[in-house]
């Protein structure tokens, strides 16, 4: 069985459409920041804002790299033949979410005049994530659980660095998507929900 990036079909197209519309709002907000800054920049008064926008693009690039890695992990693991059909179905839903995140982030970077970071090769991701060591479905789920936990915390931990409120909202949305993935996977592993409050961040 081979699973390519194009195989993933979002389970709920209306939810995806709604997400993309919301992401579009964030794109609009970020674009407005750049446009609004332009006249002031010409007058030599908007350097801090431009610096802020540049910082936001840096945050977006890191987030995009994270999504590329997640997409590769689900794609490669999904094509490994280790997953049962039911688990593969869920993995493909999650893969679709990560692709939605990737597209939204890449669009924002382009809107801001940047060049979105490109994904690495599958061979690089396989080596970096030690995917060759995955022997069972359980191994795959454990790795995915760790990556989703890390991704959730990465988004939550960077919100404070964002200058644009629209982007902060988008990061909150994405982090909760990742948290849902983590919760489902953690439950599948039979792990209890963490007792303390503030599980992430």
């Amino acid at each position: 069985m081979t699973t390519t990036e194009n195989d993933a079909q979002p389970a709920d197209t209306s939810a995806r459409r709604k997400f993309l519309q919301t992401a579009g709002l964030a794109v609009g907000g970020f674009g407005m920041l750049a446009v609004a800054s332009a006249p002031a920049l010409a007058a030599g008064k908007a350097k801090p804002k431009m610096a802020d926008a540049k910082g936001d693009v840096g945050v977006l690039q890191g987030a995009l790299a994270l999504e590329h890695e997640g997409i590769a992990a689900y794609t490669i693991a999904g094509g490994s033949g280790l997953l049962t059909p039911d688990v593969l179905k869920i993995a493909l839903v999650f893969l679709g979410h990560h692709k939605g995140h990737r597209d939204a982030l890449a669009n924002l970077i382009r809107k801001a005049g940047g060049a979105p970071v490109e994904p690495k090769t599958d061979a690089q991701y396989t080596a970096e994530l030690n995917l060759g060591a995955l022997k069972t479905q359980g191994d795959v789920v454990i790795l995915a659980t760790k990556l989703e936990m890390g991704a959730t915390n990465a988004y939550v931990g960077q919100i404070a660095a964002l200058q644009d409120h629209g982007l902060a909202h988008l990061f909150a949305q994405i982090s909760t998507d990742e948290a849902v993935h983590w919760a489902i996977l953690n439950n599948a592993l039979g792990n209890a929900a963490p007792t303390p409050a503030f599980i992430f961040g």
Binding site: G62, A65, L66, E69, A127, E128, L129, N130, K146, L147, M149, G150, A151, T152, N153, A154, G157
Partner: peptide, 16 residues
């Protein structure tokens, strides 16, 4: 470390 840094870092591999 695994929870907070593990989204981008590993001990033995360069990632993000």
């Amino acid at each position: 470390y695994e929870g907070t840094c593990g989204g981008c870092h590993s001990v033995d591999a360069n990632r993000i």
